[in-house]
Structure formats: structure tokens, C-alpha cells
Design a protein around this nucleic acid. Sequence first.
RNA 1: GCGCCCGUAGCUCAGUUGGAUAGAGUGUCGGCCUCCGAAGCCGAAGGUCGCAGGUUCGAAUCCUGCCGGGCGCGCCA
Length: 588
Amino acid sequence: MTAGLRQRLADNLAQALAASALLPADTPPPPIRLDRTRERSHGDYASNLALALAPLAQRKPREIAEALRAALPAEPLVERVEIAGPGFLNFFLSPAAYHAIVREAARPDSDFGRLALGGGERVLLEFVSANPTGPLHVGHGRGAAYGASLGNILEAAGFAVSREYYVNDAGRQMDILAASVYLRYLQACTQNVRFPDNGYRGAYVAEIADALKAQHGERFFRPVERLTAQLPPDAGEGGDKEAHIDALIARIREQLGTQDYALVFDAGLQAILADIREDLAAFGVTFDEWFPERRLHQDQAIEQVLAILRERDQLYTEAGATWFRASDWGDEKDRVVVRENGAYTYFAADIAYHLHKRRRGFDRLIDLWGADHHGYVPRVRAAMAALGEPVEALEVLLVQFAILYRGREKISMSTRAGQFVTLRELREEVGTDAARFFYVMRAHEQHLDFDLELAKSQSNENPVYYVQYAHARVCSVFAQLADKGFDHDAEAGAAQLAQLETPHEQALMVELARYPEVLELAATQRAPHHLAHYLRELAGAFHTYYNAHTFLVEDATLRDARLCLIGAVRRTIADGLGLLGVSAPEAM
RNA sequence: GCGCCCGUAGCUCAGUUGGAUAGAGUGUCGGCCUCCGAAGCCGAAGGUCGCAGGUUCGAAUCCUGCCGGGCGCGCCA
């Protein structure tokens, strides 16, 4: 197992530390870390253990390093250990250690890049969860790309991941959508009716209305006067847009009756949900579960969770509303869970949802939210704690919104006004591969300037092509074997890796060996961008090698060894790209 | 005003949880196709890691205070 290489060296160091008796028995040893070195002359791994030990043992670092080196057990994978600088222990791996890794990476049935880090822990990864009030835009795209890649990486690292989309199908925003659809429907019935300022204005709303009319005819038709008579004025009429639309929704509901209102409402919901689902699927993003908020209402899950909180004395009533004592659990203030009008808040449903996740048996809940929701984190944490759930089980990852530019012009995005660049547009113009890769090249909490002109115009120079090109090049080499009258003996190649002694080959083997470590880092830090950067570096090492040496040489032994190495590169690139949701084409 | 995130090459970003001489891409400049794919390779130039203190063997990384940017502070979702 290559992933265990670093661990093995750390264990050796721990042994040496114990054997050397450098520390008094009651002093806890510092954590033992091995870092990849930046420079070849520093070996493969470096440990700062002697430096960390110095103040504890009251001795000079280099002296301690000497003692540790002397106490290290024999290790065939290590060629030598040097003491350098202020007292670093530099480990130089033996060629055999690298050959084993390359062999492992090249083997078609190998599990190179699969770790046991997660130990099968059950993780529920919730992401996107955009309100189904309109098509996804490029901001959602970042969350989708990040979440999908993270899910894949966690899975590769040994977690049992379930991907989930929380469908907010019960809130006021959905009623506003229903009202918007209905008014467009009336307009389609040639009724001259005023569209509310706060309604959803996107063209897709009218399309849904048209479909509704095609299916149901004028079944939902009502004279405009009955809807608009004595409504509070809209913003454009000198009034309040919120009050206006709420009254309008109530009126539509009253006029249509529960059943027909539900038909209009669901027409909007289902159409948009189907669109989102299809959009994401084309983006390579799929979910194990689409969890509707409505289910929490239907199953009385909210009542139940509030009952638990009440039992634990976590609720109280004030000004007609029911409050949760969030401030007792680290939030800055208490939060309303039941409004004065008797309706549950979004937060109440969310508490129920999170408890529901735990009850479904998930050890770890990872929520991926837009960074604008960061103020919401403490209250959900508070609720978990108040329910007696382990707080560490909930992990909230905030994804910064991409700030969109078109050239130098900043694009303001508003779902309501229907002015946004959709994910679909981005896919069609930039391509799924480039978009997926581009999105995860940045750390998730990093603000991202996303210049659409740049992404589109320079799509040919996108790093994704650089990586894919390396893959295609390897494929091309193998494809030309027969043309040149050669064949390839994979087993012989795997056995002859000692033939590969050039600096380019050494460098490439080092890059390959890093793959499991990069995956571990990406999984631990929830940071797919490490994988993206790594793949670029691996591809770079390959391109350099490609330009410096010919693989299809007369010498069969050397040829087999080289093909083994680049075969390992091909497999690793394909695997890594796969985790990022990017294809690995054999030709481009 | 309070809270969270951020400030690294002209631009876009990494920086392995405090390590050794701060790195990539892109842009600029100069080279490389009788040769397995030039969507490639090699080289050059480019830095007060926002500013000022502090912690220690060692700081882009941790602490404090400023400056600048983003976001949030609802009985919205």
C-alpha cells in the first residue's frame, strides 16, 4: 500500500524516539510529521522532529537528530537518512520504493489512489440545494462542481458518501413562484393583468404558464378584478412589494381553491425541478436523494423536533412567537421557530431536517452553503447541541460566490429579475469539462473572479486541456505500438523499472507517488483544488518527459519499462480527472 | 457598529496546518517541429507575502492594532 509509505516512516521515527530515551518518561512526545520536501537535495520526506524535541529534551537539535537517526530501525524502502540545516531529518527513498509505486499505479486492477482514511464512516453530503424557483446560475455551478468532486474524493478516501439535494418546496418563495406562473397564465389567456414587482420575471415562468394552459385550458381562469380588487399597492404604485405579493398570493389561493392552487404550484415546482435535475446530470452531478422540505411537514417531523426541544426546556414564548434558546449555545441571539401567525420558520424545518439526517444513521453531516449563509451556521450548530447531538458531526463548508465579470463589467445577478448567466449557458459555451475543472481550481472559501469573456475566449488555454492532452498523448503512444512493429510486455516492463534512471523519469515517479498523499490532503481538508493542481503538475512532468525522450525505442527492455511508467501516468490522470468529473479522452 | 471570509508576481491563484532559497498558470521577451500529437517543451524577466508591532531556533502561515475588499447581522429562505 503506497498510501502507507509515509505512515511507515513516521512509525519508524516513533520507534526511534521511544528507543532513544531522549524524553523523560512523563513528557508527551510531539506529533510526528513527515513532509514532502521542496527540493530534491533534501530527499523525499523531511521531519522536523529533532527541532520540536530540542526544547523538551534540553539538547541541541542536530545532536537529537543524530540520536534519532542512530535509533531508526532498518528500512529497505529508505536508501539513506541525512541530517541537514538546523536539524532536519531528510529521508531518501530507495529506487525500489518508487518502482513498487509505479508498478502499483500501472496495474489495471490496482486500487492505487484508494485510501482507508474514512474507515467506512457514513457521510451525508448536502449541496446545491438551490430553491426551485428558477434555473441554476453560475453561482450554483461552483457549489455543484465543488460538492460533486468532494463527494468523489471522500469516497476514494474510504468514506461512505451519500449525496443529497434539499428541495425547499414549502416556503414563501415557492408561493411567489406559483403566483408568478399564475399571472403569466392569465396573460396567456389574454388577460391584461399587472405583474407584481416582486414576482419572478424570467422567461421560463411564461413557458411553464404556457404548458399549464396547453394542458388545462382555461380551467384556472378568473376575472382579473376578483384578484386585484383592494390589494395593497405594489412598490411601483407607491406601496410595499412584500405586502402586495403576499396579499396577491392569498387572493389567488382563495380564488383557485386548495386543489387548483396546488396544481399551479406543482406545475412550477416540477418543471423547474426537472430542469435542474437534467442540468446537473449534464454537468456530471447526480444525487442519491432529493429530499423535499414538504416531507418534514407531512411527517410531523417539525412538531416532533420542537417537542424534543420543549422537553429539554429549549423553547419559550414571547410576543406571540416561539423562540429557541440559541444564545445558550453560542449563537448571538435566540431564534424564532414558530411565527406569531403560527407558521414554522425555515430554521424550524432545518432543525428537523438535520436531526432527520442523523436519525438516518449518518455519522457526519457535511453541508455546503453559499458563503452568504455564514451567519446561519451558529444557530444550526446550537440546535444540534441543544438536541444532544455531537456538534463535531456537523460540518458546514462555505463556498464563496463567484463574482461574475463580463470583460471589465461586473454582472449583478438577480433570480427575481431573471437576469443571470445560467449554468446551462456556461456549459454550452465553455463545456462541462472545462467548467468543472475551472470551478475547483480555487479553494472553496476563496473569492473567485469569474470573467466569462476570459473563460469562453480562452477556453482552449484552460488547464484542463493540458491535463487531458497528457492523457491523450499516452494513449496515442500505445496506439502507435503496432504501427511501428513493436509490442509491449507489461509484466516485463513492471520488472524492469530499474532501467529508468534519467532525471525526468525520476521526477515523474516522484509525482506519481504523491497521488495518494494529495488525495489524503484533499479529503482531509475538503479541498479538491489540491487534486486539480496536482494533476496539472503530473501532466507537466509527463510533457517534459515526453519532449525529452522517445518511448518507442528499439531496446525492448527499456521500451517496456518506459511504457509501464507512462501507462501508470495515464491511469492516474484518468482516475484523478474522473474524481473531478472531467473526462479523459483518448484523442482530442 | 458587531461578526465571518479575504489581501502573495502586471492579471488569476497555490503554498503540504510554524520549516530550509515564497511557487504555478497567464501575460511579456528569446529559443525548439526530418524525431511517439507544438492544445507541447526549454530559457529569461517579474515579490517590502496590504501596513505596523508581537510570539520563537524559525512566520506568507499564529496573536494584537490599523488600512483595503467581499458577505452577513429578519417572526425571509
